[in-house]
């Protein structure tokens, strides 16, 4: 794959945007939630300050912990940053495009989860085990739903490559949104809420041991390690939202490299990410957490939607 200066610059811009905007999305989501709860809420840039604060602190670790506690956070960040480099956002060609499709992206998210789940067990605390065992159990139902939903888009173009999928979506315009693709989009949206840890699957604000999933895994992390894991969670939202946008709603993405189209594409990308953050905040504010034993029903529903989407493509005339 060859790069010219313009598309390389676009790739770099897109990566910089994704990496920089991640904490802002959390700030926006928290502000929306606060306003819906009749509170003023923290400043929009608070997540950046939190990260900087944690980064400066001395890490405290458990006497029971191993090298996993020391090194897994950096590996988690690395996995999710790498995933960011594989997903189209502003333009259809991400920096690492060609070296991985959506299976690799989902795989990298799973790899990060593998390390996080181990990290949570490392200190020997019951809370960590609780968060870890819940996380892997829910993920076992989320991942198939995500992959089946993305398979709807893949079967539509005959490729799992995200650039090919997004390019086809942009080229076909609204004709891209066939009924089967919309079913896939619905399935993905449902699974994405679980993947990013929001209501009704998980409450990102709680430290109450009875309800927490993702936060339970972070309890023993501190200092720069906490900063890394918190940033990784913020970036995971960016990856999942751009995955959704690339596969099901690529409109606005630039194909030509004219200044105007790039500007439009940048604006569209930011708008899509902010919309995702606001939507998740609305869910958090409006929904109660579902009983953990009721989650398979909802996630099974997501997988079923994706299967119906696939069946619609296979059995009905296109």
């Amino acid at each position: 794959m060859t790069w010219d200066a313009a598309s390389l610059l676009l790739g770099l811009t897109q990566t910089a945007l994704a990496l920089a905007i991640a904490p802002l999305l959390l700030g926006v989501a928290k502000r929306v939630k606060a306003r819906l709860g009749y509170r003023t809420g923290a400043p929009l840039l608070q997540p950046y300050r939190d990260l900087a604060k944690w980064w400066r602190k001395t890490p405290v670790e458990s006497e029971a912990s191993s090298a996993v506690t020391a090194w897994a956070p950096a590996a988690v960040v690395a996995a999710i940053v790498t995933a960011t480099l594989l997903v189209p956002l502003v333009g259809e060609r991400p920096l690492l495009g060609g070296s991985g499709d959506f299976l690799v992206v989902v795989g990298l998210l799973a790899g990060a989860r593998f390390l996080m789940a181990l990290l949570a067990l490392d200190a020997g605390s019951a809370f960590g085990g609780m968060g870890s065992s819940r996380e892997v159990a829910i993920a076992a139902l989320v991942e198939p739903a995500l992959l089946l939903a993305l398979a709807v888009a893949a079967v539509a173009v005959g490729s799992t490559d995200l650039a090919v999928i997004a390019g086809a979506g942009v080229a076909r315009g609204l004709a891209w949104l066939t009924p089967s693709l919309l079913l896939g989009a619905a399935a993905f949206a449902l699974a994405a809420v679980a993947e990013t840890g929001h209501e009704p699957f998980d409450n990102p604000d709680t430290h109450l041991e009875l309800t927490m999933v993702h936060e339970g895994m972070l309890l023993e992390a501190s200092g720069p390690r906490l900063a890394m894991l918190a940033y990784a969670a913020q970036l995971r939202l960016v990856v999942v939202a751009s995955l959704f946008a690339a596969a099901f709603f690529p409109f606005g993405m630039t194909v030509a490299l004219t200044p105007l189209s790039v500007a439009v594409a940048l604006a569209a990308a930011v708008a899509k990410l902010l919309a995702a953050a606001v939507a998740l905040a609305l869910l958090d504010a409006g929904l109660a957490k579902l009983r953990i034993l009721a989650l398979p029903g909802l996630l099974g529903f997501a997988s079923t939607l994706a299967v119906i989407g696939l069946a619609a493509r296979l059995w009905l005339p296109a």
Binding site: W55, T58, E61, S62, A64, S65, R225
Partner: peptide, 14 residues
């Protein structure tokens, strides 16, 4: 994340 930093090792809070 490690540069110039000491790590404090303490028992897990239970």
């Amino acid at each position: 994340g490690r540069r110039g930093r000491s790590v404090r090792r303490v028992p897990t809070w239970t």
